[in-house]
Design a protein around this nucleic acid. Structure first.
Length: 289
DNA sequence: ACAGGATCCTGGGGGC
DNA sequence: TGCCCCCAGGATCCTG
């Protein structure tokens, strides 16, 4: 499931392989992706050089000559890799860009077709697609702005973390991991978040993402980096996918509930909300007196 | 206005 | 062994 660390890994892998290369030909499969491929894009792309490759949230942006762009999203099962042209195409390969040097191809494969590849003729078109609907990158988030964003939402923290217009790049895995590190309840409402908790959560997000990028992201099912290598962060999960296993802080079992339509893993003891803590305190005092 | 749910899609795993 | 059903979840659309 490619989230920010996986997308960042793909971009870092592809950068030395793509920058300066010319896209010499484009082939597409007959299966349409989420964003239908337009035939006119082929002639617009062919012959253009890749000037840069970068990431914004979970989106991959290839900057092409004459201020045009390729915008790629890996969805759930997308793979964006450079491979030797002679290697047979994997199943579910939907778009292939032939590179002018080295006998290689840039291939986009996606089993579930939740991903997308599209062409933007101008920077304005790209900004229109991404600009309005993506919040700041976690490293660039202003802490007081972040606190404000949390406190003005009546949604639970888990739902807010998944909202790309609030903070860009966090998905289900890193939302659970960040909330665990910050020791905050996924169910806690944004409006009930203190400034101290907001600071704690933002540091946890940055810490978890930095660590995951170092490990080349998490390979759960299909994900591989731009060079085809898997990630290793799945071996370091503290909460995600560890239902029933002991919490590394307190030893109690990690629970799994459904929040914002997503499986949510957390420690019911370490990640209690303030109201839950005071409930426990009053129960204890009842027992004592 | 906002929150939550349904939808798209395929492979893998569990149950029978 | 084989079949059916459910689950995984990012973005977007729909509903209350």
């Amino acid at each position: 499931m490619p989230e920010l660390p996986e997308v960042e890994t793909v971009v870092r892998d592809l950068r030395p392989l793509l920058c300066g290369q010319c896209l010499a030909a484009v082939r597409t499969s007959r299966h349409q992706l989420r964003q239908p491929w337009k035939r006119a894009w082929v002639s617009a792309i062919v012959g253009k050089r890749v000037q840069a490759i970068r990431r914004r949230g979970k989106w991959i942006i290839l900057d092409l000559e004459s201020s045009s762009h390729l915008l790629v999203h890996l969805g759930m099962t997308g793979r964006f890799t450079v491979v030797e042209s002679k290697i047979p195409k994997a199943a579910h390969t939907h778009v292939v860009f032939k590179l002018n040097e080295g006998g290689q191809e840039l291939r986009f494969a996606d089993i579930r077709r939740f991903g997308s590849v599209r062409y933007c003729a101008t920077a304005d078109e790209l900004n229109l697609l991404l600009g309005g609907k993506l919040g700041p990158e976690p490293w660039e988030m202003d802490p007081s702005d972040w606190s404000q964003r949390l406190r003005s939402s009546r949604r639970c923290l888990k739902a807010i973390l998944l909202d790309q217009s609030v903070i860009a790049g966090v998905g289900n895995i890193y939302a659970d991991e960040s909330l665990f590190v910050a020791r905050l309840a996924p169910k806690q409402l944004g409006t009930r978040t203190t400034r101290e908790q907001a600071d704690r959560l933002l540091s946890a997000i940055v810490q978890v993402l930095d660590h995951a990028i170092e490990a080349r992201g998490s390979s759960i099912r299909n994900y591989v980096g731009g060079n085809g290598e898997r990630g290793e962060y799945q071996n370091e999960f503290l909460a995600y996918g560890r239902t029933g296993e002991p919490c590394q802080n307190c030893g109690r079992a990690i629970a799994c509930i459904r929040l914002a339509g997503r499986a949510t893993h957390y420690c019911p003891h370490c990640q209690r909300s303030r109201s839950q803590r005071s409930e426990v305190r009053s129960q204890r005092s009842e027992v004592r007196y």
